[in-house]
Amino acid sequence: MRERVRAWRPLESIGLDIALAGLLMAVPILIGLASSDGDLLLDALLIAPLVLRRRAPVVSFTTICLLLLVQTVLVDTSRYGDVALLFGLYAIASYGPTWAVWGGLGAGLLGAVVATVDWLVGPNDARTTTVSLVALATVVFASWLLGYLSRTRRAYVAALEDRAAQLERDADQQAQIATAAERARIAREMHDVVAHSLSVMVVQADGALYAARRRPEQAVETLRTISSTGRSSLAEMRKLLGLLRDDGTSGATLAPVPGAADLLELVEQLRASGLTISLDVDGDLQRVDPATGLTTYRIVQEALTNTLRHGGPDVRASVDVHVTGDSVRIRVDDDGRGSTVAADGQGHGIVGMRERIAVHAGKVEAGPRPGGGFRVAAVVPLEVA
């Protein structure tokens, strides 16, 4: 629609200019100002260039000035068609290039001087001549000033439109950035919530399959644990999906997020799945702020989940958490074979760790450790109260 409007505007402007020129040419006929066909022709020649006053303001104004110069040589009196100079001056101040704007003002003032000299110098006294010159110059300047103000207003409106368009583009970019960040955050939460529970369930299911042949009672207990873990994961998924779909009117409640103080419960849950874990905590976990505590919990959870998935049988892991005055230092080691497992390109755990650490301006390292096994080491700065 906007392109159609732009294509129609030139036709609109030239149509209005033709109507203006026609109206100006009809005035002397209607009120009897023209005394002969020659007068009508001269007025028509002066007014005709106004048809191009917006499409070609320099050409239109220059043509009018040349015709007025010819009139000065041939005729010693003013003509009705001289009003074309005022309309042409307005047009060049409003639509012409910058150099022509000031050139048009100079030409108009020069025309006022030439007209005064040609029409009034001689029989009139100096006072009359001066008053006439000032009056003509004032009319010329007023016409030019109106055009210049119109030009300034259009430039101001165009600047506002450009600024509005830029703000709209910036808003779209900010919305895209926010959307991407939110998608990444949701992906991290779903990975940490679901992948951990599913890994525990898979390991326990394998253990139940093995125990079913020799220890049926242990297999039954393991299946109960799998069922409990699955129901817990399903409940967490329902809460997460409910929050994503919540429009603010469903009354969905927010479950408390885990923190550093929940590490013991996490370790006990993984020990129940058969993973041997030693936990060493130095410092008070209760004083860790919620944001840092959640990051600490998720890093330990992801590291131990990877150990459970990739470490192999009889793997042992150690978790060291040291709370200092300005940070939480985490180290998770295992002696499994996870460092030798080829990456399949489907894992997002390490990426999620790095993204979480980046939010706190901390650092994390993950890779094989000396002597075999895998190590995850991270430093999470504490938030300043």
Rank of each mutant, 00 (worst) to 15 (best):
E3R: 13
W8I: 14
R9S: 06
D17C: 08
I18A: 11
A19Q: 02
L20G: 00
G22I: 03
G22R: 07
P28R: 02
I29H: 06
L30W: 11
I31N: 05
S36T: 06
S36Q: 04
D37R: 12
D37C: 06
D39I: 02
L41W: 08
L41H: 11
L42A: 15
L45W: 12
P49N: 02
L50A: 02
L52Q: 00
L52Y: 02
R53A: 13
V58T: 06
T62C: 05
V70C: 13
Q71W: 04
T72L: 14
V73P: 01
D82M: 07
V83A: 03
V83D: 04
A84K: 01
A84L: 02
Y90K: 04
Y90Q: 12
A91S: 15
S94H: 12
Y95V: 03
T98F: 12
A100F: 02
V101T: 11
G103R: 04
L105F: 05
L105P: 01
G106I: 03
A107H: 04
L109Y: 07
L109I: 08
V114G: 01
A115P: 00
T116W: 05
V117I: 13
P123R: 13
T128P: 07
V131M: 05
L133Y: 05
A137E: 07
A142P: 06
L146T: 04
R153L: 10
R154N: 06
A155I: 10
V157Q: 09
A158F: 02
A158L: 09
E161I: 08
Q166I: 12
R169D: 14
R169A: 15
A171S: 11
A175E: 07
Q176P: 05
Q176D: 15
A178F: 14
A178R: 15
T179R: 15
A181T: 13
E182N: 13
R183Q: 14
R183Y: 10
I186N: 08
R188G: 14
E189A: 14
M190F: 11
V193S: 11
H196D: 13
S199M: 08
M201K: 11
V202Y: 14
A205M: 15
D206S: 12
L209N: 06
Y210A: 12
A212P: 05
A212L: 05
R213N: 10
R213M: 08
R213Q: 11
A219V: 07
S227M: 09
R238G: 08
K239T: 10
L241E: 12
D246H: 09
T249V: 07
G251K: 02
A252W: 05
T253N: 05
L254N: 08
E265Y: 08
L266T: 00
E268A: 13
R271S: 07
S273I: 04
L275N: 01
T276H: 11
V281S: 01
D284S: 10
R287Q: 14
R287P: 03
A291S: 10
A291M: 03
T292S: 13
G293D: 00
L294D: 05
I299W: 00
V300I: 09
Q301I: 02
T305H: 04
N306W: 04
R309C: 00
S318L: 09
V319P: 01
V319H: 04
V321M: 06
V321I: 09
V323C: 04
G325I: 09
D333L: 07
S339C: 10
V341L: 02
A342K: 03
Q346V: 09
G347P: 06
I350A: 10
V351S: 15
G352L: 00
E355T: 07
R356A: 10
H360A: 14
K363D: 14
P368L: 01
R375G: 04
A378M: 00
V379Y: 00
